[in-house]
Design a protein around this nucleic acid. Sequence first.
DNA 1: AAGGCAAATGTTTTT
DNA 2: CATTTGCCTT
Length: 721
Amino acid sequence: MDVTTILETLNPAQQEAVVSDRKHLLVLAGAGSGKTRVLVHRITWKVQVENIAPHAILAVTFTNKAAREMRERIDRLLGFSLKGMWVGTFHGLAHRLLKLHWRDAELDENFQILDSDDQLRFIKRIMKNLNLDEQRWPPRQAQWWINAQKDEGIRASHIQSTDDPYIKTMLDVYREYEVTCKRSGVIDFAELLLRSLELWRQNSAVLSHYQQRFKHVLVDEFQDTNAVQYAWLRVLAGKLGEVTAVGDDDQSIYGWRGAKVENIRNFQVHFEETHLVRLEQNYRSTSNILRAANAVIQRNAGRLGKKLWTDAGDGEAVALYAAHNEHDEARYITDRINNWLSDGNRRDEIAILYRSNRISRVLEGALLQADIPFRVYGGQRFYERIEIKNTLAYLRLIVDRCNDSAYERVVNFPPRGIGDRTLESIRQEARKQDSSLWEAALAMTSGGRLSGRASNAVEGFAELINSMSEDLTDATLANFAETAIQKSGLKDFYRREKGEVGLSRVENLEELVAACRNFYPDEEERSELLQFLDQVSLDAGDRRVEDGEDAVQLMTLHSAKGLEFPLVFMVALEENIFPSKMSLDEPGRLEEERRLAYVGITRAKKKLFISYAENRSMYGAGSGSYNPISRFIREIPAGVLEEVRLRSAITRPTSLGSRGLQSDEGEGTGFYLGQQVNHQVYGEGVILNFEGNGPRARVHVKFAGVGMKILILSSARLSPT
DNA sequence: AAGGCAAATGTTTTT
DNA sequence: CATTTGCCTT
């Protein structure tokens, strides 16, 4: 392959990025500007033109899907397989490292990955043992806290104990959690990253091996890196490694999970001699859509700055629909969808995007009613389903009897007469002799220390696992899984379960067998089953691209990142919903919400519909709440917006107000959102929300010191400050 | 130990 | 409203 083939399909900015020979490279790639393309072509360039060995390249992404895609595209462009190039997710690569250096990393050889579900179970157990009140200290919160620490690279031992009861309690749980994980030979997602970072930091021989090897490090979606991932990259790059980072600070939407936009903003500070390239030409959307996106994101402070443009024409205006309520909104959407379809378009070109999953419910109902096939993404993923996890637990136990979380999950599932009391005594024994549950159970049954019935049941379980284990020899993975599902009693259990739920569970079990059949191991030494289990822990089995069925796609704005659709509906653009109520006080979080709006708008290729409901019921039928129109709608210039009104405004004047789209006003009140006001009793505050209208209109005001108050506007006698 | 009923509880989620 | 959770009964 010659130079021109790599470059000819690229625009000048893309070419500049691909051939850059400064030490480091930061590519600020706007939505739809061809970032993956640049990454793939740059790798090809290095191999084909600069004669860099594939062996010396490490490319890292966040999702398995992105990693797969990158691998395929490099393969295709390069014309030969990756040959020792490391391409994978942060977690996948970290896992690989830890597998190779398990001894140096002080891990069990067969360490297992703890998914967030199992992690929560662990933490619940620990908190129970510590006699912590679940009401006062919700385990989810502890899980959140621990993960947040780990994402920052903070170990329990790094934290100073304080008098603060919250920190004290969390720290106790964290400490105990570390011990439990170690004893059980499991590591959680955050631990994969942190442990591999520590491995490098503490073991210079291992580190220098990888520094010698990976002279070229490339990172996708750089704006989503957290503190540990960033440190990981810096350590690996060392003084000599060359780093290419591709990302978009405007699309950083995972701050709440520890991602640091600062990482991309500071890149040029920490990585000297950086060449900065902006990709601003967008190949996805019409001008009108981009104008809307640019105008919204422009409101954020501290951006690296970037303005998308396109060769494409203006296209249609962005449509805005003010719905009476969520049902009206849903009906409007199904009507538009039917129009689109009757023009001969496909359903899978359509996406409906929302801030939070609960919004989808009414839409699902409407689509069902309108007979429009759809698929809701997000929510449960394949390998997270309970029936799948149970099956996998059997498989894990067969591979490793000492896997306590697997043991706990299935000792008594399907029910076989091993209750809480029995299990608790086994747990105690395990803790006493510092062994696995399996070993403790064995000791107790052979020592006759369990009642006859319990003893028989526990023994029976052990025999079951042992006998399943024998089936492993010379069966194919799929056949083995099938027998396991059979013998464990899972199949019978779910078959007997009534309703559609049971049916779909049996189907999922069959699908798992199919997944086994389609699995191709890539290592020689380790057994197929071991490799399968590892892959499954790291890949949730997101089946988004599934069978290419022609269905409308419903998903959250978060899960829409990276996707594009000719026709996009952004729904429920109301204050407190989008932007979400939780993000309203902190400016940083509000900016993240705005980025989310930017992500949403830029998903649309041809036509974007935005809608909001003047009244939205929280759950089901209640009277519902009046949320003001989302500020993000106001931030879209009037020129690209076209307000659709199907009926005359009877119930409520449009929240846009007579002064048009630019106003930030709570209609007819004389006040506006975010305004500083004074109250005779509460003092100074800021207006966060309007509710209702007419004489009953109320305002939500957050007062300094006093907190949030809801006041009747007509009697509160607020004055502007 | 297992099943049934009332009460609690509801952002976003790459791995 | 709809789903999950924990308590209570058998």
